[in-house]
Write a protein that binds this DNA or RNA. Structure first.
Lengths: 143, 143
DNA sequence: TAAACAATTGAATAATTGTTCAAGTATCCT
DNA sequence: AGGATACTTGAACAATTATTCAATTGTTTA
C-alpha cells in the first residue's frame, strides 16, 4: 500500500494549504528517526535510566537495577534499546559494564522534556487536587 | 508483579552512589509527565500531526486527515490525546475544528528531536571501528 | 579446573496501544 | 423540519511492547 500518488482521495476543506504542506513535508525516514528517539524516552523505565545517567556520569547495570528496583534482565533489555539508538554508550571493566549517555544532545533533549513536564504540571488548571495517584498508561482525561 | 514495598533487596556494587542518587531522585509524578510527552511524540501519526502544525499555524481535522492519508476518526483520536496533554489547542468555527500547537515549548522540543534524528542519521555507522562498541547481534531497524 | 558473578539474550507471556467500525454530537443549509 | 457536513466517542480487534524466566556468554577468583 502507501501509494504516494493517490494518498488523498479524501475531500478536504483547505486543499491549497494541504497541497502546499505536502510539498515540503517531512521525509518518512526522518519521521522514523524522531519517533524512535521520542518513543525511547517515552517509557518510564528508560526515562528513569536516562535521568539517572544525567545525574551520575556512569552506572553499571547492577546499580541501575538496584536503583530502579527492577531485574537485571529487564534493565539490560532496555539498555540494549537505548544502545541501538545511540542514546547511551558503554564501557566494559572486567565483568562490569558501565553505561553512560552517549551525547550531550540527549541530555538537552531530556532536560527540555522535563521542563515542559514541570510547566504542564503547574499550569494544570483543570484539577488542583493533589494526592491523586497517577498510574502508568492512564492518561487522565476530562470531558 | 513488582512489590513496591521492598523494591531493592538486590545487592549492588556501588551502594553509596546508588543511595546518593536515590535521595534526589526524580519524583514519580514528574517521570509520568515526561514520559507522557515523549510517548505522545513517539508515535508516527502524532509526530506527523505535530510536524504539520509546526508548518501551518492551524489545520482542521479534515485537512490533517487528507494530509496524513488517514481516517478522520484515527486522526481525531490522536488529537484528543495531544489535547489532553495540552500539546495542542483547538478553536471551533462552525462545524470546523481548527487545531494548533498549544505552546512554543512543543515546537522547540520537536525541533530538537528532529535535529537529533538528523544527526543520528548522518553518523550512521559506516564501519569506522576505532573504539566503536561492538554490537552483538545488532538488529537493524528499517522499515 | 570449577564455581561465582555481571551481564546478555531468546522465547513466552502480559500489558499497552493504534486503528477501524459504528453510532453519536453539533452545526449548517436547503 | 430534514439532510448533509465535520467531528467525536466507545468498543473491539490487531499489532506492538515491556517484563519475566531460563539458558548462555564472558570474566574473575578460589
Amino acid at each position: 500500500m502507501a501509494g504516494p500518488d493517490d494518498v488523498c482521495q479524501v475531500v478536504c476543506i483547505h486543499e491549497d494549504q494541504v497541497l502546499k504542506l505536502r510539498q515540503h513535508f517531512i521525509e518518512a525516514k526522518l519521521v522514523q528517526g524522531v519517533t524512535d528517539i521520542f518513543k525511547a524516552l517515552g517509557d518510564p523505565t528508560r526515562a528513569r535510566i536516562v535521568y539517572a545517567l544525567t545525574q551520575a556520569e556512569e552506572l553499571c547495570v547492577c546499580d541501575l537495577s538496584a536503583l530502579l528496583g527492577m531485574s537485571i534482565s529487564a534493565v539490560s533489555h532496555q539498555l540494549r534499546l537505548l544502545r541501538n539508538l545511540r542514546l547511551v554508550k558503554y564501557r566494559k571493566a572486567g565483568k562490569v559494564v558501565y553505561y553512560s549517555l552517549d551525547d550531550d544532545h540527549v541530555v538537552d533533549l531530556f532536560r527540555q522534556g522535563l521542563e515542559h513536564a514541570r510547566h504542564a504540571q503547574e499550569t494544570s488548571y483543570k484539577s488542583e487536587n493533589s494526592g491523586v495517584p497517577v498510574r502508568p498508561g492512564d492518561n487522565n482525561r476530562e470531558d
